[in-house]
Design a protein around this nucleic acid. Structure first.
Length: 568
RNA sequence: CGGGGCGUAGCGCAGCGGCUAGCGCGCCACGUUCGGGACGUGGAGGUCGGAGGUUCGAAUCCUCUCGCCCCGACCA
């Protein structure tokens, strides 16, 4: 590709709206063009890279036994009502009407359609297992798109779906997919963490997220430096620090004027936060829920939602609290009735907590479970935090920010049951097909790769996903000998199958061209200039290398072919 | 949906009631330069997001509306 034909313009200055490095660099390098909030065009440089990522994914999916297919993005809403996922997605789903007034959606994902396809084509355990996958556009009307390609409303996603007669077969595919994912990330130059994840509203057993650690990430991963335990914040379990034993005390009221937060309470009474009880009120499917845990812990809403088996969960409003006779800031599990009470195990391991009194400006000392209060449900609802103990060993947990670049699930039989995708087993019994699903956001993977691989001058593409392998720079092209040599080298490189971007612009000075080469970040830079040419040589420099070396002009092509082959 | 901010040339911005709407970058022409974002001269480029209103006169004031960015809740 000749630079003078390239549509992308590089920007000299950073675009002010871009917060993350990847977003900034993709705009500066002319990789993406924003069409609407969370809707981007992929310009030629980005598209070449995205195609390479897709092909890596394709190769690994095929190697893992996947068959590629294509499904419509436009789907009848009715299909989503059958699985109850219209409500689950809510306003996140783009919906529209066709000319006859039929309700349609732009699909956010494809479990419904793939299950319908398999229902029509699989009747027997003999037809199983199968793994199908697609790489295509999906739509989600996100509340807030952000960070360039990381959270967008129209995106390319690879989704694979597996179908099985039994759990052992699902396990096998799940492991194969997990390995395929590791291969994909390795080939894209991404050191990812595989984290245990919550399997979400649909249920199912295992689920793992693949997280690329980066300070600008949206997700939090909890890791253990000792045993390798890795889980996302929603899923992670932690052992909270135990309390020193304390003799039981009688329940006793204490005046706490205006003390409404745990921090203020602990300070006012000169006790650690872990000696208080925290009360958090939620509305779960229109029912008021009273959650209690130790004061130094936070509620993990995903765990709470799972424990309650509810569909929606949100903090209760002040009005709802008043209606239930509760006093905000002084709510207490002691003596409360008419509300569902959920307790975290942390409240059972100590005694003599300070709790609310359900009266203004008053708390109670000496509260002990179960002497002074009980709960309807005792379940782990605490957020694991750095400093807590690892649930698998005796070390202390750490936390890392990251971007989710893949997610695999054991779905189970939810879709096959709601859509009637059944098969006959060996005994002639009709059974729902067992499913798994495995997703990777392609554009997000590119953004993550750039976020992970850049320096202060620009992008540093990992070779397997670089738009071009070589960035050939001609300096001082008004010199006929330079123009001739560079042009010939460009043709020779392509003839040798080496993808080359040739900066053939006649006017920009050396500084402009070299800075653009650094910004765009192809793995190898070649410089043809009068100075180099006088020595019959071309300068060869890896993007990650500080120094260049000189290679005789007539050996450049073979030198590069060997070098690129060695780098894979 | 809550909070904050912004829409003026391809990009970034200034102008916020009174000359023909301006600056930087970029772009075009000519010349000088030529290894880390050069310089000179001349030029092209604008429904001032949209609609309505106030006014002799609106980019500027008022109302409505559309879009975009950032923080939060939601999510791949």
């Amino acid at each position: 590709m000749k630079f003078t034909r390239l549509v992308s313009k590089t920007l000299r200055a950073d675009p002010p709206e871009a917060e993350t490095a990847a977003h900034r660099l993709m705009l500066r390098g002319g990789l993406i063009y924003q069409v609407a909030a969370g809707v981007y065009a992929y310009l030629p440089l980005a598209w070449r890279s995205l195609r390479k990522i897709e092909n890596i994914i394709r190769e690994e999916m095929n190697a893992a036994g996947g068959q590629e297919l294509m499904m419509p993005a436009l789907q009848p809403l009715e299909l989503w009502e059958q699985t109850n996922r219209r409500a689950a997605f809510g306003d996140n789903m783009f919906s529209l009407q066709d000319r006859r007034g039929r309700a349609m959606v732009l699909a956010p994902t494809h479990e419904e359609v793939i299950t319908s396809i398999v229902r029509a084509n699989v009747q027997s355990y003999r037809d199983l297992p199968v793994v199908l996958y697609q790489i295509q556009t999906k739509f989600r009307d996100e509340l807030r798109p952000r960070a360039g390609l990381v959270r967008v409303r129209e995106f390319t996603m690879k989704d694979a779906y597996s179908f099985h007669a039994d759990d052992a077969s699902l396990d096998e595919s799940y492991q194969a997919m997990a390995q395929a994912y590791r291969n994909i990330y390795r080939r894209c130059g991404l050191p990812v963490l595989m984290a245990e994840a919550d399997s979400g509203a649909i249920g199912g057993k295992d689920s793992h997220e693949f997280i690329l650690p980066t300070s600008t990430g949206e997700d939090t991963v909890i890791t253990c430096p000792g045993c390798g335990y890795t889980a996302n914040a929603e899923k992670a379990a932690g052992r909270f620090p135990d309390l020193a034993p304390e003799p039981a005390q009688p329940l006793q009221a204490v005046k706490t004027p205006g003390i409404k937060t745990i921090a203020a309470l602990a300070e006012f009474l000169s006790i650690p936060e872990s000696r208080t009880l925290k009360a958090v009120l939620y509305t779960a499917d229109d029912e008021l829920v009273f959650a209690t845990l130790r004061g130094d812990l936070e509620v993990n809403e995903v765990k709470l939602k799972n424990a309650l088996h509810c569909r929606t969960l949100r903090l209760a409003t002040d009005e709802e609290l008043k209606a239930a006779g509760l006093v905000a800031g002084f709510a207490s599990p002691i003596g409360i009735t008419g509300v569902k009470r959920v307790g975290d195990p942390s409240i059972t391991s100590g005694s003599s907590f300070v709790a609310g009194a359900n009266q203004p400006d008053t708390h109670l000392r000496g509260a002990s479970y179960p002497r002074d209060f009980q709960v309807d449900l005792l379940a782990d609802i605490a957020l694991a935090q750095p400093g807590h103990g690892c649930p698998r060993c005796d070390r202390v947990l750490e936390s890392t920010r990251g971007v989710e670049v893949g997610h695999i699930f054991k779905l189970g039989t939810y879709f096959s049951e709601t859509l009637g995708a059944l098969h006959l087993d060996r005994e002639g019994q009709q059974k729902p097909i067992i499913m798994g699903c495995y997703g990777i956001g392609v554009g997000r993977l590119l953004a993550a790769a750039i976020e992970q691989n850049h320096d202060d001058k620009g992008m540093v593409f990992p070779a397997p996903i670089a738009p071009y392998q070589v960035h050939l720079v001609g300096l001082n092209l008004s010199d006929a000998a330079v123009a001739q040599a560079a042009g010939q080298l460009y043709r020779d490189l392509w003839a040798a199958g080496i993808e080359t971007l040739y900066d053939d612009r006649p006017d920009p000075t050396a500084g402009v061209k070299l800075n653009d080469a650094d910004l765009l970040g192809m793995p190898v830079r070649l410089v043809v200039s009068p100075r180099n040419l006088r020595n019959g040589a071309v300068e060869v420099k890896g993007r990650r290398e500080a120094a260049a070396n000189m290679v005789p002009l007539d050996q450049v092509v073979s030198h590069l072919a060997a070098r690129l082959a060695a780098e894979g």
